[in-house]
């Protein structure tokens, strides 16, 4: 018995989680949204786009690390997550070379040039999406669903308001919940995204601090200000459902705002971050030039993370008193 007693310095309790296991669970959690996206956009070869982005991301990471004579880290699955998320963030009609450029940008410029996993200052998949959105605006914002090109529900609402008619004309909340609408490959089905989110919450990979405050703040913001801009009254259930289910909010809040590397580690900081994201998304959606605002909001939030962490750094027990 006494031989089993080991004397060592802290930490004494270790978690069995590794980067690979966490990333693997994120991939698994993304599978429902991926599968539904591929099924939903089966006539536009969404599967090809997802394979291209994922494979390019992994290959880029491998080649860069080989060339730079660094330890190869493709087995930690982080490149797979980046590639998959980027694929889910592209419209199904995007050509394969666009996915390729996006993946190379995400891994090479945003992740590896800053030092690899853990060093990137913004979410690689989202920055690649913004890169493509700025570069190929036409291709990134034309959506085809069921062989018919049409607006996403959010763009539809925006167009309705601009035309002076009822904002909610032609919006079907049930379709938006199930995902039977146009949009990027992974964002349309709220149910599929939520299945993934529940998997991650149950596995303890994410908690509600970021995503919950994000969505709640966004909902509150829209409940207050939505009426002024979109003219649907102070609180309108259908409008709220459409805004919360529409666009990239769900995918962004559960999968991209919670990226460990680019979100605050302090508990208070995570709540501050979630609130900031909610307000920014609301502002971009209501007052911005585009109907979408999630990707830019999260990117801006990423940039503010060091400041948030600095403000919310907890004081060690016994150090210093109240000022």
């Amino acid at each position: 018995m006494s031989e089993q007693l080991k004397v060592s310095s802290s930490p004494h309790i270790r978690s069995n989680d590794t980067t690979s296991s966490i990333m693997m669970w994120v991939v698994i959690a993304l599978l429902p949204a991926t599968a539904y996206g591929i099924y939903n956009f089966r006539d536009t070869q969404a599967w090809l786009l997802i394979i291209v982005t994922t494979a390019t991301a992994v290959l880029t990471e491998y080649l860069y690390e080989k060339l730079m004579k660094k330890p190869v880290t493709i087995q930690d699955f982080s490149a797979v997550v980046t590639g998959l998320l980027l694929g889910l963030n592209l419209p199904p009609t995007a050509p394969w070379w666009m996915g390729m450029i996006g993946s190379i940008f995400a891994i090479l410029v945003v992740k590896q040039l800053f030092g690899g996993l853990g060093q990137n200052f913004m979410n690689p998949a989202l920055s690649a999406r913004c890169f493509l959105l700025i570069s190929f605006t036409g291709r990134m914002t034309s959506f085809v669903y069921d062989g018919v090109s049409g607006a996403t529900p959010l763009a539809q609402m925006r167009a309705n308001v601009e035309a002076g008619s009822d904002a909610l004309a032609g919006i079907n909340s049930m379709d938006m919940l199930l995902g039977r609408t146009g949009g990027t490959i992974g964002e349309t089905s709220v149910i599929a995204v939520m299945i993934g989110a529940i998997i991650m919450i149950l596995k303890g990979i994410i908690d509600l601090r970021i995503s919950g405050t994000y969505i709640a703040t966004f909902a509150l913001f829209l409940a207050i200000f939505g009426g002024f801009v979109d003219g649907v009254g102070f609180f309108n259930g259908q409008y709220m459902t459409a805004q919360i289910c529409g666009g990239g909010l769900m995918l962004g809040a559960w999968f991209m705002a919670t990226d460990y590397v680019t979100s605050p580690i302090t508990k208070t900081g995570q709540i501050v971050y979630g609130i900031l994201l909610g307000i920014m998304t609301g502002i971009f959606r209501l007052f911005g030039g585009s109907a979408e605002g999630v990707s830019y909001a999260i990117i801006f939030g990423n940039l503010l993370v060091p400041l948030i962490e600095r403000v919310t750094l907890p004081r060690p027990f016994g150090k210093g008193g109240e000022k």
């Binding site: 450029i101 410029v109 890169f131 700025i134 570069s135 190929f136 605006t137």
Partner: peptide, 15 residues
Amino acid sequence: YEPVTIFILAPGAFL
């Protein structure tokens, strides 16, 4: 060839 517009915008200058 499809031009990558971001390069003639501000971010492209930094890149």
